[in-house]
Design a protein around this nucleic acid. Structure first.
Lengths: 229, 229
DNA sequence: AAAACCTGAATTGTTAACAATAATTTGTAA
DNA sequence: TTACAAATTATTGTTAACAATTCAGGTTTT
């Protein structure tokens, strides 16, 4: 039915396994493969038009990224983000991205800082418009965080955050549909930017951690109002 | 030659791929497969007595853990820990394990705290003996850190640290052979324990971060005395 | 002599068939 | 009707053969 034959691409970017891994990630964070749904090797093998080998490699890769869980002789399922898992994710994110902000304060170039500033100005306009709020909610917010992370210049940190955690964050946002307080988030972003511009790593880390901790508390309240860390 | 046929095991624990992954990890952190050495699929396939399929799965898994790097159509090599990569690792470790200490302060049971205390007493005796220093250097230090990490009760944190970073740490220790200041380390461990016992998460995090940052600075000096972060 | 190109061998990527395990279904008995 | 058990089915784990790509060596050309 929904044939997304990978071989139709005229020029392959990498191997089929990499290609399929990318498609799978897309299908998961877009919600096409909902949380908890089974990953049937024969079925997806047909849909993507590849053998089971490359598909298995893709699944292995996604398992490493934490997007799917596998049980021997049973199969793979898209991970289900429970309240606990979300909390755990945000704790890790708080630690890693705080460190990223701290490092970014010393490693970002003036050029990068300038671009970050104009990005924030764009966001401000979007929010004033009150129309492009959807943009800010989805991509704009991530844009800011991605730039700070990249600014850390720590490859391992970048990989942990961008290749593992952020897929799950996007997945959560897509499925829960919810998003909140763009104005407050923008203000917090601006404060973080100020700290980065001042090359104050300690402050940048503290602000980033609080920024993420706030989002985490909101999620916890939203899902289970009684529970409080 | 060195036949480590996996099928000789009378009762399999999991799948062959899991088995081989464990063996590979052991061979890498023990130094049997040195840094930068090629991982030849046909050769290791024969040595471990399994087909290429399970071996490839094992390699994929190790790639996810960061123990090997792969290039398409070229193959996999054991990762080479450069000075930069070590620094990056320790920055991530500082962030994650600091958070782990913070969480452990609220989540560890009195029982776990008691066991941790007796572990520290054992270490103190070992160091007094001046004989078992080797033990403390290798396993004792890790024991302490593992317990704090597990005490965080954050599964994702535990996985990131124990299944990914700590393999690399062990690999570094084995290959570099170097280890330092057991007395200072013990004192720092005792301070961290005190903070955990007092349920002071903020202090526990700060102490753990400084503990790791100190080890990191030492490594940086040891490898490149001029360079200072 | 050096560089570019072609050729062969070896390795990785991929596929398809086989084996082993788990889930489902069906049948039987209480 | 329900509970249990055996057999069937479908899926995963594994192997072996095939295809595609890279690397090494030698040859040719400038």
């Amino acid at each position: 039915m929904t044939e997304t034959n990978v071989n139709n691409d005229t020029h392959r970017v990498g191997t089929q396994a990499q290609e399929v891994a990318g498609l799978l990630i897309g299908d998961i964070i877009s919600g096409k493969l909902p949380q908890g749904s089974r990953i049937s090797e024969p079925e997806l093998s047909r849909q993507y038009g590849v053998g089971r080998g490359p598909l298995r490699e893709a699944i292995l890769k996604l398992e490493g990224a934490g997007l799917v869980v596998r049980a021997p002789h049973v199969g793979a399922r898209v991970v289900t983000l429970t309240q606990t898992e979300l909390s755990e994710m945000f704790a890790v994110r708080e630690a890693l991205e705080g460190m990223a902000a701290k490092l970014a304060a010393t490693h970002m170039t003036d050029q990068q800082l300038h671009e970050l500033e104009s990005l924030l100005n764009t966001h401000a306009r979007y929010i004033q418009d009150h129309e492009g709020q959807a943009y800010f909610d989805q991509e704009g917010d991530l844009d800011f965080h991605y730039r700070v992370i990249k600014g850390s210049c720590n490859q391992r940190l970048i990989r942990s955050l961008c290749d593992e955690l952020y897929h799950l964050i996007q997945m959560y946002r897509k499925t829960s549909g919810r998003r909140a307080r763009p104005e407050e988030a923008l203000i917090e972003h601006q404060m973080i930017f100020k700290a980065l511009k001042d090359r104050d790593g300690e402050l940048a880390e503290m602000l980033m951690r609080r920024h993420i901790a706030r989002a985490r508390r909101e999620i916890e309240q939203f899902i289970d109002p009684d529970k409080q860390s």
